[in-house]
């Protein structure tokens, strides 16, 4: 799993421009699925038929593949790019960040106007420097509407901890890929690598409508509360996968959270409960689609979400993997 996650953190996947990460995912999963297609919003759907032909039931597993990004809104005469955020990013935390443009691979650094105090910094004070001399020079590689994401490597820290700029939510993507490769189920599995989650779960909304599955399961990152003076959270790194009970977008029916807890007990995996009233996920957009869709979720706790250095425990990933496989095998 570690190598898969590492591979998935390399491609850039700005909300609304997910083609690079999508292509990487497709290359890995294509041999393991029966069918795949894309939609207008940019979602990637992959279908793995049920092990028996009897069941017409479907489980839709959703992992968003996008990440917060910086959208270019203006290019000045000296070739500096003015930007606005796509998704939850804070202006002050971006100064000095290294970024890469998804479309062309052009790299750059985020700079700030000099006369603004750090605490007063807004996006209108920031720009990306791609080393261009003039507007026309810059426009060879970057156009208005192009988006850049963080460009940092993947590292292992301490024991069983990994750090990367897009673990939210390439960890979820890796778990979904693993399930498509290895899990068995009497339900047809529709894997959705969803687009545009960071700007409001727009991909998930249309995916829920299109698939209208028997049951949906969302794989995502959820911020932990185990660092000095962290925001209150029930989640701890290394204590196992988190079974979603509540987030900002939905309350999970007990029936389905209990199924996941049962699955954890079946495989003796450690687990914790996600009660995260300020954390968003694709779950809320899915369960309100059409006539309503039973929706549940597994979350991987992470530190430093929204920064270039998100930290996740590999032990939690393993526990998620086991729980997901068992959950899928018991659907009947």
């Amino acid at each position: 799993m570690k190598d898969l996650i590492r591979t998935l953190t390399v491609p850039s996947g700005p909300s609304g421009d997910e083609f690079a990460i999508k292509e990487s995912i497709l290359r890995i999963v294509e041999p393991h699925v029966d069918e795949w297609y894309e939609d207008v919003l940019g979602n990637l759907y992959v279908i793995k038929k049920a092990r028996s032909e009897i069941s017409e039931k479907t489980v839709m597993i959703v992992a968003h593949m996008d990440e917060p990004a910086l959208s270019v809104i203006d290019i000045d005469e000296d070739g500096f790019l003015r930007i606005a955020p796509l998704g939850p990013l804070h202006a002050a935390s971006l100064v000095g960040a290294r970024v890469v443009f998804a479309r062309t691979g052009r790299r750059g650094v985020v700079g700030a106007e000099h006369n603004v105090a750090l605490k007063d910094l807004e996006f209108s004070h920031l720009f990306i420097d791609i080393g261009a001399q003039t507007q026309s020079d810059a426009m060879r590689d970057v156009q208005i509407g192009d988006a850049a994401t963080f460009a940092y490597g993947f590292e292992e820290v301490g024991n069983q901890l990994i750090v990367g700029h897009a673990l939210d939510n390439r960890v979820g993507c890796a778990l979904l890929i693993d399930a498509l490769q290895h899990a068995q189920s009497d339900y047809t599995i529709v894997g959705v690598f969803s687009a545009q989650k960071e700007v409001g779960s727009r991909g998930a909304k249309v995916a829920g409508h299109r698939i209208h599955p028997t049951i949906a399961l969302v794989l995502d990152i959820s911020p932990s509360g185990d660092t000095p003076k962290a925001e209150r959270s029930s989640l701890t790194l290394g204590a196992g996968v988190a079974v979603k009970v509540l987030d900002a977008t939905m309350v999970v029916s007990k029936k389905w959270s209990n199924h996941l807890i049962e699955a954890a007990k079946n495989v003796s995996a450690s687990y914790q409960i996600e009660v995260a009233p300020r954390t968003t996920s694709d779950a809320g957009a899915i369960f309100l689609a059409q006539s309503g869709i039973p929706t549940c979720g597994l979350a991987i706790p992470a530190r430093y979400v929204g920064t270039p250095s998100q930290m996740v425990s590999l032990a939690d990933v393993t526990s998620a993997q086991q729980v997901l496989h068992n959950f899928l095998s018991l659907l009947s």
Binding site: D39, V40, L41, S71, I73, D74, A84, P85, L86, I144, G145, R202, K205, V206, H209, R210
Partner: peptide, 23 residues
Amino acid sequence: QLRRTIGGANDVGAIHLTEMGII
């Protein structure tokens, strides 16, 4: 010209998310 801001919204916001998504 291209519209150079991310502020504001219009009916596309509702239309493009209708049903399975609309170009």
